[in-house]
Design a protein around this nucleic acid. Sequence first.
RNA 1: GGGGCGGUAGCUCAAUUGGUUAGAGUUCCGGACUGUCGAUCCGGUGGUUGCGGGUUCGAGUCCCGUCCGCCUCGCCA
Length: 599
Amino acid sequence: MRTRTHTAGQLREEHIGQEVRLCGWVHARREQSAELVFVDVRDRYGITQLVFDAEDTSPELPKQAKGVHLEDVVGAKGVVRARERVNKKIPTGGVEVLVTELEVLSRTVSPPLIASDEQNLPAEETRLKYRYLDLRRPKMQEIIRTRHRVTKLARDYFDEQGFLEIETPCLTRSTPEGARDYLVPSRQQPGMWYALPQSPQIFKQILMVAGCDRYLQICRCFRDEDPRADRQAEFTQIDCELSFVDRETVLGVMEGFAKRVWNEVLGYEAGDFPRITYKEAMDRFGIDRPDTRYGLELVDVSDLAAKTDFKVFTEALEKDRGVVKAIRVPGGAAKLTRKITDGYSKFVQDFGAGGVPVTKVAGVTLEAGIAKFVEPIAGELIDRLGAKDGDTILFGADTYSTCSKALGELRQRVARDMEMIPEGAWNFLWVIDFPMFEFDEETGRFYAMHHPFTAPSDEELERFMGADPSDRETIESIVSDGYDLVCNGSEIGGGSIRIHRQDVQKKVFELLGISDEEARLKFSFLLDALSFGAPPHGGIAFGLDRLIMHLAGTDNIRDVIAFPKTQTGADLMCEAPNVVDEEQLGELHVKSTARARTD
RNA sequence: GGGGCGGUAGCUCAAUUGGUUAGAGUUCCGGACUGUCGAUCCGGUGGUUGCGGGUUCGAGUCCCGUCCGCCUCGCCA
């Protein structure tokens, strides 16, 4: 009875009369009487009702069926027959198996999580500790299946496009820029360390130099930073690189992949993806990954604000790159109570803003909130925003970057509060023309906005090569050939045309304040490679976990990873990380300065 | 590193200003019932209230510390 003739999702009316064997977990048990018991058996493929009927078989069978527990593993032999009443909720609902022989293949003790009980889903902590029970749930099985389909689709699609799947090392060297590395001590070379890859970036570029032309890898990446709801330290990307291409070619191939995924998994036909420049995204949405499923765009009203005596506005405008921006919330007056908008002021303080001045449109004028301060510009403001009676107007007043950040985040919160996000909408877009560099006030130096291997756009090349490291304005204004793919306000992919000239790469290092010596020390292999005939190339990496989150309709990245980690980087099931023997450490020439918890 | 929320029966939750023996549903155990599909009905087992201190006549409840989980800021080229 440990083998089966059919899965639990397979039987239909056409099987009626056949003798079958099914195996699986007990999903539910319904005891109608001492003579009639129903047991639903579940496997990855579905659920089938087993019936134990004393009248049609023997009194022993219902008795035996009463002894099975939820989540026991059973095998049953019987005959398929039509049900007296069809259960339309499941695909096998037209039939049942009249069991003639039952074997309990494996008993369970009372489990902390019951796959059929979605109503009383345990806390996530319990789900993670007993992950094998959580993954039995049909919802989780569905996600696992979706994830498989997408990786298979990636391999099929890119294979059709001439890509080769090539593996790059997990034990590699630490990269100085970017996120914190996970480190692995070398046993053979005392005092030396490997790093786990944050991305196979340099390897895939070198594969282009090696003439591989088109590369694909579905690879694990590691970044030792605190996680979020949509971010894990260990994650998977669909990583691609192509030679002899410009931006258009790359975007075309990648857009084709995204469209195919959505089409085959969700049956959704996406139109061509719109493009927006980084600057426009920041101006209109205050964020580099705008959610365009709703309006609530940011409108610059600095010139009008300058005409008022409102201190919050005038003081902001005195700042370097100070701006005043406004968001019109249609119909906000009725829904956004004082309590809610007070909450908004608190909310934006997390992003460095002072608060959110508010007013409401009443007829052709403004009332409440800061109405009396903006009275002189009321008409112009209403015109500029296209505001109507019953709208609320929210303001941000600060430096461009703080104001954008605060209103950009606020915009998303307001959309949720106002229930403005349409169900089932998929808004893809490419964000292009990112700046090459970002100046960091704290350290007083430039950082690569994407990564230091991103090429300046062709038109910028001359200006870039001639840039003086002290000329902040010029450097900040140089636009790169990088691009991000955004879906419903979440970044699902990012890439760029890379630098394939050694002199250009050296210039990037110079502007980043990395000396020749340091660059040689850390990137000699890349610089060497670029000097031996590197083809023009570019690529992208999709965040697989994020793709699956969208396709599965979850906002929790742990739901799409079979064995995810908690916020403290723990695997609650296998209890990693954990202590190791002194002997192991000795072999690795490592001594810890910390005392591990012993609880 | 900072802020917020949470931890009570195997699981999901409740417990009034600090006050009797910490309750309910479910799982599990026993019983009734021949067409259920969240079966129903009756009865029962089940508790170091995360952990450690403290205040108090009395602490699940208040205070301090600590651990764990979630959300978030910083961080994530």
